[in-house]
Design a protein around this nucleic acid. Sequence first.
DNA 1: CCTGAATGTAATGTTAACCTTACATTCATA
DNA 2: TATGAATGTAAGGTTAACATTACATTCAGG
Lengths: 84, 84
Amino acid sequence: MKNKVKQLRERLGLTQEQLGELVGASRQAINAIETEKNEPSIWLAYDISRVFNKTIENVFLFEESERKSRSEISRGYAYGNKRD
Amino acid sequence: MKNKVKQLRERLGLTQEQLGELVGASRQAINAIETEKNEPSIWLAYDISRVFNKTIENVFLFEESERKSRSEISRGYAYGNKRD
DNA sequence: CCTGAATGTAATGTTAACCTTACATTCATA
DNA sequence: TATGAATGTAAGGTTAACATTACATTCAGG
């Protein structure tokens, strides 16, 4: 899954290890996400996005990404729904 | 993790099974999320939120939730960051 | 060129989110 | 009250996201 973690981390002058400490994850877990080898758990995605003061959707780019091991999923069932 | 899936699903008149079909998950997976037995993967959380035309953070309530098996994590490192 | 810090990656093990199957319970309605 | 649909839940299996440890590579400073 594409994401902006590396870019945002470097903007804050953090190493992978420092970011890992901030979110309670290992350096390797951060690295695997940045290099798109792993997809983060929802909590790790949330914690990372909080470090950057962004939403999950603004750090992890679902639209531009491909799902690893599943086929096509319908999008936008509630297209008329105007609530956030 | 607390979430609004049941409430939003019923608002659309969907069954757990129908929502599962829309997002490519089993009925039991939807049920486990609604009853807070499982935390969704990031993709399942995303797909569910798209059905409801909402953001992940508006369907899954991290702030009000407790993490299942981890301790305290620092929040808001980049507190001065005004970008979304 | 050294040297250390940062990064990339591999191996191995654990755990939880999924799956399928199956059965019990709740609930609306005929 | 019967009956079917929806929901809740349990058991057993698979898989991927983690952890830890270890080693190789890259890169900036002295």
